[in-house]
Amino acid sequence: MTGFAAYLVFFLIIALTYSIVVMGLNLQWGFTGLFNAGVVGFFAVGAYGTAVLIGPERAGAIGGFGLPFPIGVLGGAALAALAALIVGLATLRLREEYLAIATFGIAISIQLIALNFEALTGGAMGLISLPRPMLDVFSSPAHYNLFYLGVVAILALVVYLALERAVTSPWGRVLKAVREDETAARSLGKNPVLIRLQSFVLGCTLIGFAGGLYVGFIGYVSPLDFLPILTFQIWAMLIVGGSGNNRGAIAGAIGVWGLWTMSGLLISQVLPVQFQSQGGAIQVILIGLLIVLTLLFRPRGLIGERETVSKHAGPR
């Protein structure tokens, strides 16, 4: 494989992992209208949860159970679901924005734990030399990466198909009913709070699941991989792809991640060293502009073609 092809494989693994995060977020925002402002927190819980479950034992540390990878990933996803339950139960019966505030808060708290709770998370160093699933089966790293790409692609496809089914199932129709006319849904005997909670927790479970896949591929966790900017990046992927549209979510993940890595590359090549941090700021500004401008001028996304969330516009 040439260097470029190898890089492409690497790129696609990350982008498709993020696409699962974006689909989880899409379930929350696109299909339920819930604003999760702490995506990175749930992603980190999934990643750290997996790392603790599969990692080798460390002296004086919690975890290092050395469990098989699939169990680790599912455990990480379950922990993300638990975190979602904590904020969901507190806020979903309240004004919608309270969920946004609480998710923002839990993400900050999770970041603090990742950074400071050394016995569990390894602190600033993170947890390293985690076993990568089935690594020894393959003769070269390139082959292994191809294999992992296949796994992630299949899982992304499974998530895509499952979500497409879910939103057209009776449950999905109730979801739509709750979003479009809460009072009517309530009068049909549906409990909007419960439906929203289900959607929120399911979305966060997917986000946490993707966190586990991420760890399986890179083989370590470090707080640097879970900075608040990731939340914005994931959101940009969703908004650009068009909320309410799962195919757009995947395309948005690849497109925005591509834009991000390429602009990063460009900055590191073109800008002199003393301006690199400004370059980083410009990169982030692009993400912010992408979000705000798409919301203003292309509310259905740049790629999306399907109807987005519709709800009675209030009188003005």
């Binding site: 209208g33 919608e96 924005e97 914005f232 959101w235 500004i285 979000i291 919301l295 987005t308 709800k311």
Partner: peptide
């Protein structure tokens, strides 16, 4: 706009900018 939370979300984007 249809989804009331859009405006909250836009403020999230603005904060970053």
């Amino acid at each position: 706009r249809p989804n009331d939370m859009t405006i909250v979300f836009s403020s999230f984007g603005v904060s970053l900018l």
